[in-house]
């Protein structure tokens, strides 16, 4: 029997258990509304390393280690690591994997990488190929800023639509074991959508249509109503992208209006000078592996749809005047 349902959605016949998770965040994220819910809040952005790139890689490595040590496993007992980040050649993930000695698949989906890694990991587990798989991602404000934008110390005004790349790493451990919650029950793989937006300082606008399209496909494929989920969160649309997504929900006829929010908006409070909100792989990873999974384990949320969103441009294509292609993948987490 095919596990694919409808056009883009897969339904897991033995839903993999999220048996543990861990999150590490930077100082700014720690000062946000969910500071208490993360496993570790760093004191500074260098994390006792020489460069920000090394710090990001270490955050990712530590998130993976903490997630597996919560279940008293050694890294050698983990069969597969699926991981990615925002940097060129996904170096944070590559260098983290170098230290961990776990068979490794690198992923790049820009800020959608958490959902992409989780759904791939869930397929690997549900498919019976592996029984213990870790999915993990990271992003770091200062490594992303220097790769995608202007030098840190240059005095430029940030647009109100711009977003703050989160300094955060998150990891989840998926296991093929009976009993326990939460589990990954289904996932919808997004298409690359480009609605002609080209402002790299307004990625929420570029990504919102991709998010809504994937959410719509998820409900159509599964014949579900939006109120099936206690909460639908997008990854990093920010305030601007979230407002656009809500308009698009109405336009697409997604009724009743889902209980919807965005990790990039949730991650910071209004006084933190992040303009439209947080972004980066770490935005959805930190919210998921911090407060959201905690609330699921406490039974405060029982059905969660995580829709991580990614803007798939590079500085080179931006200079060449290309528009921003975007993607969103949805992962359904349920207490069953």
């Amino acid at each position: 029997m095919s596990k694919k349902q409808g056009q883009q959605t897969i339904v897991f016949t033995s839903p993999p258990l999220i048996s543990s998770w861990a999150s590490l965040v930077g100082p700014k994220e720690g000062q946000g509304p969910w500071g208490e819910d993360f496993d570790q809040v760093l004191d500074d952005y260098l994390y006792d390393e020489q460069t920000w790139e090394k710090a990001e890689s270490k955050m990712l490595r530590e998130a993976v280690k903490q997630a597996i040590s919560k279940r008293y496993y050694q890294p050698s007992e983990i069969e597969l690591l699926i991981s990615g980040d925002l940097l060129n050649q996904i170096v944070s993930a590559n260098y983290a994997a170098r230290e961990l000695s776990i068979p490794f698949l690198g992923m790049y989906g820009a800020c959608s990488t958490m959902a992409e890694s989780m759904l791939t990991a869930a397929m690997a587990v549900d498919g019976g190929f592996f029984s213990r798989v870790v999915a993990a991602v990271s992003s770091h404000h200062y490594t992303a800023e220097r790769q995608f934008r202007t030098p840190i110390e240059q005095g430029v005004q940030k647009s109100a639509t711009s977003q703050w790349t989160a300094t955060a790493a998150g990891a989840v451990l998926l296991e093929a074991v009976p009993g326990g919650n939460p589990r990954i029950t289904s996932a919808t793989i997004g298409q690359v959508i480009d609605m002609g937006q080209s402002d790299a300082a307004n990625m929420g606008s570029a990504m919102a249509p991709a998010a809504v399209k994937t959410i719509k496909a998820h409900f159509d494929d599964l014949n579900r109503s939006p109120d099936y989920y206690d909460l639908i969160v997008t990854g990093d649309l920010g305030k601007v992208g979230m407002a656009l997504a809500q308009e698009l929900f109405i336009k697409e006829g997604l009724l009743p209006q889902p209980n919807y929010s965005d990790c990039g908006v949730l991650l910071y409070n209004d006084r933190q000078d992040v303009n439209s909100g947080g972004s980066g792989c770490g935005s959805s990873a930190a919210m998921l592996c911090g407060p959201l999974l905690k609330k699921m384990s406490e039974g405060k949320i029982n059905k969660l749809l995580l829709v991580a969103t990614g803007a798939l441009m590079s500085p080179t294509t931006s200079f060449q005047g290309e528009t921003i292609p975007s993607i969103a993948h949805a992962v359904a987490l349920e207490n069953i």
Partner: peptide, 11 residues
Amino acid sequence: IMDLTKPAITP
């Protein structure tokens, strides 16, 4: 120039 042509004209 910067505000009215956003985002075309950068510093």
